[in-house]
Amino acid sequence: MKQKFFIIVLISFIANVFAQNNNIDLQLSLGPTLSIPNTSELTNSDVDGRPQIKSKMNIGLFVLPSIKYSLNEKSSLDFGIGYYLDRFSIEDKLGAVTNEGNRNIHQIQTPINYNFHFGTNKSYEFGIGAFASFVLSAKEKGDVITNNSEINIVDPNDPTFSSNTTVSYSKDIKDNYNTVNFGAFLQIKKNITFSESKKGFILLKINQYFNAIKNNNSESDINQYLEFKNEKEPMTVNIGIGILL
């Protein structure tokens, strides 16, 4: 946690130093992150237990201090270092056992993008850029649900029989992700005025990761199941509001 705040403070300090240049503005944006898995459901009936995995959208957050450098009236560059929390809901089933939980991926991102200014008073900006992401931690928490009616050794006539057994779990899944990964994004911003002295913007950004998830080990004895479970790279949508500091 200290690392996250240190990096954010550092970028703020650097930006204040450069802010003496009239072409440079310090920005701070924040808001929710909608994490959208590319694969919503996979099933493999050729493997014992018919493994099935489902991913669902969930909501995280981001905080991004950044520097905006105006090239001219029609274009600018943005560079920032911010904290991002991507969250995914997951349902992973194998036979009678289903894991239902949420994955939280904490990371530092360094986005850079080129903006085209357009519209009335050039109040709109369309940006295209890329980012590097440094994974700080990744955890999954949820419940392991066992459907006892699907287990042959369980007698449903037993007075102690319960159709489902639920046990909570928490596991570290950082090894599932590359510590450093990359992505690209498209962004649109609308500049707004809060008051005579304070300006800001609202933004919509779509991020696509390229190599966040590690490839499976092809030499694994259970490679058939691992290949099936190999998830595709996620997409996230940032919706935020920002101010010029």
Rank of each mutant, 00 (worst) to 15 (best):
K74R: 10
I243G: 13
N99F: 13
N191Y: 10
E231H: 07
S220C: 03
N164R: 13
K198Y: 05
D175T: 11
K199C: 10
S162G: 04
I128W: 08
S220I: 00
N21A: 13
E196P: 01
S75W: 07
N38Q: 15
D25N: 15
P234V: 03
I188W: 03
L34M: 15
Q187R: 14
T43Y: 07
Q109R: 05
H106G: 14
G49A: 07
D86Y: 06
N121F: 08
I53W: 01
F126N: 00
K189S: 13
T179R: 09
F79V: 11
Y124K: 08
N216C: 04
E231A: 13
F118I: 12
Q208E: 15
E233G: 06
F13M: 03
F79D: 00
V180M: 11
L71T: 09
I128P: 07
P51H: 00
I53M: 03
G31H: 07
L245I: 15
S195L: 10
P32N: 02
T193I: 15
F185T: 14
I53A: 11
V47H: 01
L42N: 13
G200E: 10
I53G: 00
S137N: 08
S35R: 11
L71Y: 07
P37W: 10
T110Q: 05
A15G: 09
S75I: 00
L10P: 00
N121L: 04
I7C: 08
N58K: 05
S89C: 05
F201I: 08
L34T: 06
V97N: 14
M1C: 02
L42G: 06
I173S: 05
V63N: 08
I36K: 14
K122Q: 00
A138Q: 01
I173E: 01
L85Q: 12
I188V: 15
I112N: 03
M1D: 01
N22R: 10
N22D: 13
R87K: 09
K214F: 02
D143V: 11
M57I: 07
N157E: 08
T179V: 06
V237G: 14
S29I: 09
L245C: 05
K93L: 07
I243K: 13
L204Q: 11
K68S: 11
I11Q: 02
K68L: 13
N99M: 11
P111I: 06
L136H: 03
K141E: 10
D48S: 13
V180C: 04
S162A: 10
N178E: 05
T33G: 12
E73P: 01
F62N: 07
D221A: 03
I239K: 04
N44V: 01
N58G: 02
T33Y: 12
K139S: 12
N38A: 15
N113Y: 04
T146D: 01
Y124D: 09
T110W: 08
S197T: 15
S55W: 02
L226T: 00
R50V: 06
S133E: 05
N216D: 07
G80C: 04
N16M: 06
